[in-house]
Nucleic acid binder design. Sequence first.
DNA 1: TAGGCCATCTGGTCCT
DNA 2: AGGACCAGATGGCCTA
Length: 224
Amino acid sequence: MTELKSLSEDAYLALSHSYAATAAGLTFGVARVPEAVHGYGVPEPGGDTPSAPEPCAPITAPESSGEQSGDEDDTFEQRQRRRGSGTADGRRRPGEQRSLRLSINARERRRMHDLNDALDGLRAVIPYAHSPSVRKLSKIATLLLAKNYILMQAQALDEMRRLVAYLNQGQGLAAPLTAAPLTPFGQAAVYPFSAGAALGPCSDKCAAFSETPSALCKHCNEKP
DNA sequence: TAGGCCATCTGGTCCT
DNA sequence: AGGACCAGATGGCCTA
């Protein structure tokens, strides 16, 4: 199995730094995601009740997840008593509190599942090795890779626009764009993660990124 | 065994 | 009031 170490954040930052010019004009910050995200709730088979055990779900620790299975009411009540009535549900009867808490937990779980689904969708469109033998990109790696990909695409688009303008200038506006296929871009411009670098010393590991370079790979940044 | 990654719970805050 | 979002805490799983 191809082992893929988690990518160092610095590597991503370093890579994206090389596209700083493009990045300068782009802001992706969204303080609060508006309606587009609200109400997207995908109804789970189990409705509001705690969903079926997830791959990592059955946490049996006494403190953190006892109530997911709904069979440790005493612990839950004890905790509620310990915490006092600082929250909105403080004035509720214990049973009511519990069911409200379970409902909130289920909602939060669903929200996180939807978030993970979105991340999966993002992974699906990011150019990296999707082989089953390659470990799935971590969340942070997915986001950083996606960011770099977007920056590279923006740069390529900009480059293309400039080229088209140049061609139109030289050949007259009548020249059809389809007359000559536009293939002026180097691999680096088309493939965002290659950065034009040759395979590093750990090309086997970097192969996880479709033979991409080393800037993304911890191993490549390791000192010999 | 330590460290990375993840899922879940939880309480707080903001918004509708 | 209820829902969405967020961040901290906790514990499990996996890999080097």
